[in-house]
């Protein structure tokens, strides 16, 4: 990736983190940590690697993005708002009655959201269905699915991984947000996923591993997945929960969902009073 493009994407990611924090900050609390950890990936998909068009959000030929860890909704909404899928003002309505932006991703409420998620473990199967539909219709769109590490303790994830691997779904790329934290603590202490690389390889997946906050590395992985014709690709993204917001990162496990003060978000976003 050339330097200018990388710089552009890095700046976008910072901007999108600010939108995420403002959105949750205005509400007062929410799923900060897991939204922030996937923003570099979403920035690359929506601003560089993906075939997406905010003016035609239901284009049958578009790439699909399934956020199976549905509680990262605010992170996705920030990217969508920034791309112009809906007016930026709507971020002020997160989780308020009648909003188009509910806590967990909802394809029937938010323009640009491709699949509803929130009950963990289900989105990857849906992403497989989208990839199979692409094969039936001989379309060349790609499906990107983001699963959580804690979410991967759900059995359905492994049913889906086994099927994706065996079906050699080369139009599906799976990203696991490996921040090693879940609500009750560290994944390693609760029910460890390691060795994750070996598990994915054993499921016949083209397994890649990247720093989930290095946009150039993420983009390389996406291109490697596009180039891989005989396998479905799974990208393990080593991430930091709450990345890019020091007072979120510091909270570690406590960054999953927490209260943000008005002073905190206004300072971070550089926004004076309305």
């Amino acid at each position: 990736m050339d330097k200018d493009k990388l710089l552009f994407l890095q700046n976008k990611a910072i901007e999108i983190r600010k939108i995420t924090i403002e959105m949750i900050g205005r509400l007062g609390s929410g799923h900060v940590g897991g939204s922030l950890s996937i923003i570099d990936l979403l920035t690359d998909i929506y601003y560089n690697a993906g075939k997406v068009d905010p003016k035609n959000p239901s284009d049958p030929d578009r790439d699909r993005v399934v956020i199976s860890k549905g509680h990262a909704g605010p992170g996705l909404y920030a990217v969508l708002a920034s791309k112009g899928y809906f007016p930026m003002d709507e971020i002020k309505t997160l989780n308020k009655g009648g909003t188009h932006l509910p806590s967990h991703c909802d394809m029937n409420k938010t323009v640009g959201v491709d699949m509803t998620a929130g009950s963990l473990g289900q989105g990857l199967s849906c992403a497989i269905g989208m990839a199979l539909a692409g094969k039936i219709d001989k379309k060349d769109y790609r499906v990107y699915c983001v699963i959580g590490d804690g979410e991967s303790q759900e059995g359905q994830i492994w049913e889906a991984l086994m099927y994706a691997g065996n079906m050699k779904l080369n139009n599906l790329t799976i990203f696991i947000d490996y921040n090693r934290m879940q609500i009750d603590g560290y994944t390693d202490e609760i029910n460890s996923l390691d060795p994750l690389d070996d598990k994915f390889r054993a499921f016949n997946l083209n397994t890649l591993r990247v720093n989930g906050h290095d946009i150039a590395a993420i983009d390389d992985a996406i291109n490697a997945a596009k180039a891989c014709k005989d396998k479905c690709t799974a990208v393990i993204m080593d991430t930091i929960k709450g990345y890019g917001v020091p007072w979120a990162e510091e909270r570690k496990v406590g960054s999953h969902s927490f209260a943000i003060t008005e002073q905190q978000w206004r300072e971070f976003c550089g926004k004076e009073a309305d």
Partner: peptide, 15 residues
């Protein structure tokens, strides 16, 4: 469970 999810995903694409 996977069967149901795969069906849902196919349905989003008009199947």
């Amino acid at each position: 469970a996977n069967m149901v999810g795969v069906a849902a995903g196919l349905s989003t694409c008009g199947k």
